[in-house]
C-alpha cells in the first residue's frame, strides 16, 4: 500500500458517499445516470468475486464489501425508492455498445484464460468506460448539480491517483500490470474535459455549465 493508492481509495469512497448523500438528502436522483450505476455494480460484482476465497487484508475486504453494497444500494435508491425522480429521458446511452466490446476484449486480452481472471479483466475494461453514460447525460442536460460535479470529480480523481500508485510500484516494487494501467489511463482521460470544466467553473463557485 502506498499514499497514492490510499488517497485513491479514499477519493473513491468519498465519491460514493457524496452520491448516496445527494440522493438521500435531496430525495432525488435527478442528473444521475442509472445506467452508469448499473455498470459500476457490474464492475464491482465481477471484480470482487475473490472476496471470500482470497483474503488479502481487512482493509481490502471491508472496501470490497463497501463498494459492492453501496453500488447495489444506489441502484435500489434510483430504480425503486426514488424511481419517480429518475430522469429516463436524458439517460439514454446504449450500454450494449460498451458491454459487447468490453466482453470481447476481456476474452481476447487477459493474463489468464480462467473464469475469475476473465471476469476481473472484463471488470477492469468495463470500469474504464462505465462513466460514459453519466458524462453523456451531463452533456445532454447541459449542466449538473454542484454536488454531482463533486461526485464526478472524486470518482475521476480516484483512478488518476491510481496511475501515480502504478508509477510508484513500478519504480519501488518492480511491479506493473499493463491491463490495469492502460484501462486506468483511458478511464482518467475520459474525465479530462470534465476536470477542466470542474476546475475552471465549479471551484470558482459557478455552476457546471457545458458550452451549449
Amino acid at each position: 500500500m502506498n499514499v497514492f493508492r490510499l488517497a485513491g481509495d479514499l477519493s473513491h469512497l468519498l465519491a460514493i458517499i457524496i452520491l448516496l448523500l445527494k440522493i438521500w438528502k435531496t430525495r432525488s436522483c435527478a442528473g444521475i445516470s442509472g445506467r452508469s450505476q448499473i455498470l459500476f455494480a457490474l464492475v464491482y460484482t465481477t471484480r470482487y468475486l475473490d472476496l471470500f476465497t482470497n483474503f488479502i487484508s481487512l482493509y481490502n475486504s471491508v472496501m470490497k464489501v463497501f463498494f459492492i453494497s453501496t453500488s447495489c444500494a444506489t441502484i435500489y435508491l434510483m430504480y425503486v425508492k426514488f424511481k419517480a425522480t429518475y430522469d429516463h429521458n436524458h439517460d439514454t446511452f446504449r450500454i450494449g455498445f460498451l458491454l459487447i466490446p468490453v466482453t470481447i476484449l476481456g476474452l481476447l486480452i487477459n493474463h489468464d484464460f480462467t473464469p475469475l481472471e476473465v471476469l476481473w479483466t472484463f471488470s477492469i475494461y468495463l470500469e474504464s468506460v462505465a462513466i460514459l453514460p453519466q458524462l453523456f447525460m451531463v452533456s445532454k442536460t447541459g449542466d449538473a448539480e454542484t454536488i454531482t460535479s463533486h461526485y464526478l470529480f472524486c470518482l475521476g480523481l480516484y483512478r488518476a491517483l491510481y496511475i501515480f500508485n502504478w508509477i510508484y510500484r513500478y519504480y519501488f516494487e518492480g511491479f506493473y500490470d499493463l491491463i490495469a494501467i492502460v484501462a486506468g489511463v483511458v478511464q482518467t482521460v475520459l474525465y479530462c474535459d470534465f476536470f477542466y470544466l470542474y476546475v475552471t467553473r465549479v471551484i470558482k463557485g459557478k455552476a457546471l455549465k457545458l458550452p451549449a
Binding site: 475473490d50 488479502i56 493474463h111 513500478y170 518492480g174
Partner: peptide
C-alpha cells in the same frame, strides 16, 4: 521486472 497481477488492488 515481472508483470504481475494487481490482485491486491481494489
Amino acid at each position: 521486472l515481472v508483470e504481475q497481477k494487481s490482485k491486491d488492488e481494489l
